Amino acid sequence: MSGTESSDYTQRLARLENAGIKRLLPTQAPYRWNLRRLRLGRVLDVGCGIGRNLLNCGPGSVGVDHNATSVATCRARGLTAYTPDELATAPDCGPGAFDSLLCAHVLEHMDETLGNTILEQYLPLVKPGGSVVLICPQEAGYRTDTTHVRFVDFAGLRAHAEKAGLDVARTYSFPFPRAVGKVFPYNEFNLVARKPRS
């Protein structure tokens, strides 16, 4: 997770949120729609950053992030977010407390072993039969951030899901077909899975 712990990283996320064309057009609308159509219910947003996705999750959703400045930014926006230590003792955040887990633009910031560990750490908080959504940037997006350490494509997402014992329901490229990800920095790999009921 090199470089993502600092307040500078939080400030970078805030700057990018409203940079360029984003000031004029609702560029996040397709991504909000993508989350909402998955009907994720109460979400645990792992690696929530400054809350871009958490803002679009269901009532009672909670973010967790290792960057305390990002967590503070979420709280300033009226969102519920914790550092990992805080989450461990937070009310209504115990085993099976969440309908789903979202891990968006996180796994590319760490090696495979740590990625597996993160999922293993937070999956117990998702109810049996709950959804797990993993999202990573495609090529053009991967190149935009120097804190990215590993390119995670469909095969990489599926490997994480299988290691975690999840049942993969589907994978898809969003918002455009896969080939577009080589030039469009906001194209994403999406994986939707289920936590087994037993």
Rank of each mutant, 00 (worst) to 15 (best):
F189M: 07
L55Y: 11
P30E: 13
P137T: 05
D111H: 05
T144N: 10
Q138A: 09
G96S: 13
L191G: 01
V168H: 04
V64S: 03
S131M: 04
Y142Q: 07
S198T: 14
R77P: 04
V132H: 01
K182H: 15
Y142C: 01
A90T: 11
R170M: 10
E86H: 05
R197Y: 09
P137A: 07
G60F: 12
R32V: 15
E108S: 06
C136R: 00
E108Q: 12
T113D: 13
A161K: 00
A81K: 09
E188K: 15
Y122T: 10
V43Y: 05
R194N: 12
C48N: 07
P59E: 09
I50Y: 02
L101C: 05
L54R: 02
L157Y: 01
L35I: 07
D153N: 01
P128D: 08
H66Y: 09
G115T: 00
N187F: 10
L25P: 08
Y172I: 11
P177Y: 10
G41D: 07
L191C: 05
V152D: 00
R170H: 06
P185Q: 12
L166V: 06
G181A: 13
R36W: 02
L107F: 00
Q121F: 04
Q11F: 04
P91N: 07
G63H: 03
I135C: 02
K182T: 15
N18S: 13
P91M: 10
C103I: 00
L134V: 00
T27P: 06
T113R: 13
S70Y: 04
L191P: 01
M1C: 05
F174Y: 15
T144Q: 15
V183A: 13
P124H: 05
P91K: 12
P128L: 07
A81D: 14
E139M: 11
D85Y: 10
R37N: 10
G165D: 10
V126N: 01
T117M: 02
V152L: 02
L119V: 05
E17D: 08
V132I: 07
N187K: 14
S198H: 15
R37L: 10
T4E: 02
R194K: 13
Q138T: 07
G20N: 06
R143D: 11
G20R: 04
T171H: 13
Y31C: 10
Q138W: 12
A90C: 11
Y172A: 14
E139F: 11
G41N: 08
H105F: 13
H66S: 13
A169T: 15
R42T: 04
R178Q: 15
D65P: 12
L40Y: 09
V43E: 00
I50G: 04
D167T: 15
G58I: 05
F154Q: 00
L16S: 10
G41M: 02
D153Y: 01
G47F: 03
H105Y: 09
L16E: 12
Y122E: 11
L123R: 04
L38V: 13
L40E: 04
